[in-house]
Amino acid sequence: MSVRIYRPAKSATQSGTARSKVWLLVFDPASPRSTDPLMGWTSSGDMNSQVRLRFTTKEEAIAYAEKNGLDYRVEEPKLAPRKILSYSDNFKSTRAGPWTH
């Protein structure tokens, strides 16, 4: 059984970083999902697809996977450098970009 260890990205709809500070261990699907012919719902017999384990550090998640004999892959977070600007920077005389309003 294989798992994926990753750190989720910050939510695009919120300015906070509440759920992006933990590492998640998620099981890969063991079987493909099937569609119910009557209702059209998708279902799966794989119960591990519902399990999401949270860890405070990457090392704890790796230790858990190794202890339980799970094949794992670690996906490092892609952190873009944030350029801190203030509202007054929009009106500077040394502004490099063109005015759009």
Rank of each mutant, 00 (worst) to 15 (best):
T42V: 14
G40I: 05
T13N: 12
T35Y: 12
S43K: 05
A96S: 10
N68T: 03
P81T: 04
S43Y: 04
K10Y: 08
P37S: 15
G16I: 09
K83I: 09
I84N: 15
A65Y: 00
P81D: 00
I84E: 08
Y6M: 05
A61F: 00
R4Q: 06
F91G: 06
R82Y: 14
P81E: 04
L85D: 03
W99M: 00
N68V: 03
V51M: 05
T57G: 13
K67Y: 07
M47C: 01
D89I: 07
K67F: 04
S93L: 07
R52L: 09
P98S: 04
T17P: 04
S93P: 02
R19A: 14
Y72C: 02
V26D: 10
T100Y: 15
R82Q: 12
S49A: 13
V26I: 06
E59T: 07
I62T: 05
A18P: 10
G69M: 14
V22S: 15
N68Q: 08
Y6K: 06
R52F: 09
N68C: 05
L70E: 05
F27M: 00
P8H: 14
S49F: 00
R82A: 15
R95A: 09
A12T: 02
A80R: 13
R7G: 07
T42N: 12
M47P: 01
W99I: 02
L38D: 13
F27K: 00
R4H: 11
R7T: 05
A65W: 01
L38A: 12
V3L: 04
H101K: 11
M39L: 11
Y87D: 11
T57N: 07
A12Q: 09
F27V: 03
D46Q: 13
Y87Q: 12
R54V: 04
P29T: 06
N68H: 04
R7V: 02
E76P: 01
L53C: 09
T13A: 06
T17E: 11
L53D: 04
D28H: 09
R54I: 06
A96M: 14
N90C: 13
A30D: 00
R4G: 10
R73A: 02
S86N: 10
D36N: 13
D28E: 13
I62K: 13
R19G: 11
R82K: 12
